[in-house]
């Protein structure tokens, strides 16, 4: 936190900090750890499967249409003869990209917006929170359709749409936390030491609300995944031949006789969502013991 003070030359061991002890508690929760591991594995597979695979995700093979899962095509093939295994992971990559990027923006905007509104308070707080209230009033799908009619259909757009709507919750949560931290005595102590408001927010307020934020972020990512899936299910955002879990599920739902087309993408998504939920649960317990 302070680059300037250096205690290393004193040869005094730094004791287990807050985050280390949180991790120690988390590592005792087997369900959360397994969930975390699944998320990591899925993320790695989304990155590497399309890279190392011998077939490209958009390679159509008219001799291999609607094949059931086999040694050659682990998840089977679709109506254009494309390999579903590769498509599932390229779709996952897109879905994760949108979700993580949106979550990142949500965290950044939500934390600063909420922290400033909560910390400064007064009129500014009132105005900032009424803006949030107004944005809450805009229906999500209507907003997306509006964006697409205005700017055309693209992946970047679905990311913008999701992020624009999702930071609202985060900013409200952060504002509430900030209000309670603001009146803690250690913040007052910093005021008496002449620390500027911006420094108090970055040095004292934000580190102390990170716990709540992280839990909420872990709950936000699956939300984003669902949202991006909903958008692409309706054909908004991602366009063929690129794909996403939402598109794959939509595809599978239209070809019910080919069960694998629905089962694999839907299964992957459900596993991902559950893993995030369990991880978030574990994080909450680890951050706030008892």
């Amino acid at each position: 936190m302070f680059g300037k003070i250096n205690t290393l030359n004193l040869d005094i061991p730094k004791t287990k900090g807050f985050w280390l002890s949180v991790f120690a508690r988390l590592s005792r929760n087997k369900l959360a750890m397994t969930s975390g591991l699944i998320i990591v594995i899925l993320t790695l597979m989304c990155i590497f499967v399309p890279m190392v695979s011998s077939v490209a995700f958009d390679k159509t093979d008219w001799g291999q249409i609607m094949q059931t899962p086999s040694g050659q095509h682990w998840f089977g093939t679709d109506s254009l003869g494309r390999d579903l295994f590769v498509r599932c992971f390229i779709g996952g990559r897109i879905t994760f990209e949108i979700a993580f990027a949106a979550a990142f923006v949500v965290l950044l905007v939500g934390i600063f917006y909420g922290a400033i509104a909560g910390y400064v308070g007064g009129k500014l707080d009132t105005i900032m929170m009424r803006v949030v209230d107004v944005l809450y009033g805009i229906p999500f799908l209507f907003f997306c359709i509006l964006l697409i009619t205005l700017f055309g259909n693209s992946m970047a757009l679905s990311f913008v749409a999701i992020a624009a709507i999702s930071w609202l919750d985060m900013s409200r949560i952060v504002r509430g936390q900030t209000l309670s931290i603001k009146h803690k005595e250690f913040v007052e102590a910093a005021m008496i030491s002449g620390v500027s408001n911006l420094k108090i927010i970055t040095r004292h307020v934000i580190p102390n609300l990170l716990g709540v934020v992280i839990v909420y972020a872990a709950l936000t990512v699956p939300n984003m995944i669902v949202m991006s899936a909903v958008l692409s299910f309706f054909g908004l955002g991602v366009t063929e031949p690129m794909t996403s879990w939402g598109l794959l599920i939509s595809d599978g739902a239209q070809n019910m006789q080919a069960w694998w087309l629905l089962l694999f993408p839907a299964g992957l998504m459900i596993i991902t969502l559950l893993s995030f939920a369990f991880l978030a649960n574990g994080l909450r317990d680890a951050l706030d013991p008892r």
């Binding site: 302070f2 003070i5 205690t7 250690f186 910093a190 580190p207 102390n208």
Partner: peptide
């Protein structure tokens, strides 16, 4: 009165650094 995310050194040094 002490920020739980800071070490003793950081807490005591803060007024001086500021």
């Amino acid at each position: 009165a002490l920020d739980p995310r800071m070490t003793v050194a950081e807490i005591i040094a803060e007024p001086l650094i500021t």
